[in-house]
Simulated scan of single mutants.
Amino acid sequence: MTEDAAKKAAMDRLRRAAARVRRHEAERIELAEAIVDARRLDWRPSEIQDEVPYDRNHVGRILKAAGLTSPRGQRDTD
């Protein structure tokens, strides 16, 4: 393989990998938005956790970033 062919192959691989990461990021954002929507519809965090590939701590972080958490023992009112 010539140096030019090797560079072209490396660039093609780099572009394919970058495209996969962009798709993955878009899917991750979509899932976070769906988690927030479910919580706004009064799904409990434990119910959401059962449906997604994230543990309860990660679900909690997503909800906290969206302002959808309350102190322990209190129920959200929105």
Rank of each mutant, 00 (worst) to 15 (best):
P71W: 06
D12R: 06
K8I: 06
S70D: 09
T69Y: 01
R15C: 02
L41K: 14
A65S: 11
G60M: 06
A5E: 09
W43Y: 15
I48S: 00
R56Y: 14
E25M: 10
R16E: 13
R20K: 07
E33V: 06
A38W: 09
R16H: 08
G60Y: 03
G73A: 07
S70T: 15
E25K: 13
S46R: 15
P53Y: 03
I62T: 03
W43S: 08
A9W: 01
D12K: 04
S70P: 00
V36D: 02
A26E: 11
A34V: 04
E51S: 15
H58M: 15
Q49M: 12
S46K: 11
E27H: 05
M11G: 02
A9C: 01
D55S: 13
P45C: 05
L68Q: 01
Y54M: 11
A6M: 06
G73W: 03
R20E: 10
S46E: 15
A26M: 09
A26Q: 10
A32V: 01
L31F: 02
D55L: 03
D55C: 11
D55H: 05
D37I: 10
V36G: 02
W43M: 13
W43K: 07
D37F: 04
A9P: 00
P71H: 13
E47F: 09
D4Q: 14
P53A: 02
A65T: 09
R72M: 10
K8R: 08
D50G: 14
D37M: 09
K64T: 11
A66W: 01
R72Q: 13
R44Q: 14
A19T: 10
E47T: 13
L68M: 03
H58C: 11
R44L: 14
P53D: 07
L63Q: 01
R28C: 01
A18M: 09
E30H: 05
D55Q: 12
I35K: 00
D4V: 11
A34H: 05
I62R: 01
G60Q: 02
G67L: 04
D37T: 05
S70Y: 09
L41M: 11
G73L: 07
Y54H: 14
E51L: 15
E47I: 04
A17G: 07
I29Q: 14
A26D: 10
V21K: 08
L41H: 11
R44P: 05
R20S: 02
H24Q: 14
S70H: 14
V36F: 04
E47W: 13
P53I: 01
R16T: 06
A18T: 09
A9N: 03
R22T: 11
A34N: 12
V52D: 08
I35D: 00
H58A: 15
I35L: 10
A26N: 04
E30S: 06
A66Y: 01
S70R: 15
R56N: 12
R72C: 05
K8E: 07
R22D: 08
M11F: 07
R44C: 09
D55F: 03
K64R: 10
A6W: 08
R15M: 02
T69F: 00
K7A: 11
S70N: 08
H24R: 12
G67S: 01
S46A: 13
A17R: 14
R56I: 15
A34Y: 02
I29P: 00
R40H: 08
A18V: 03
D4I: 11
E47C: 09
R56Q: 14
V59K: 00
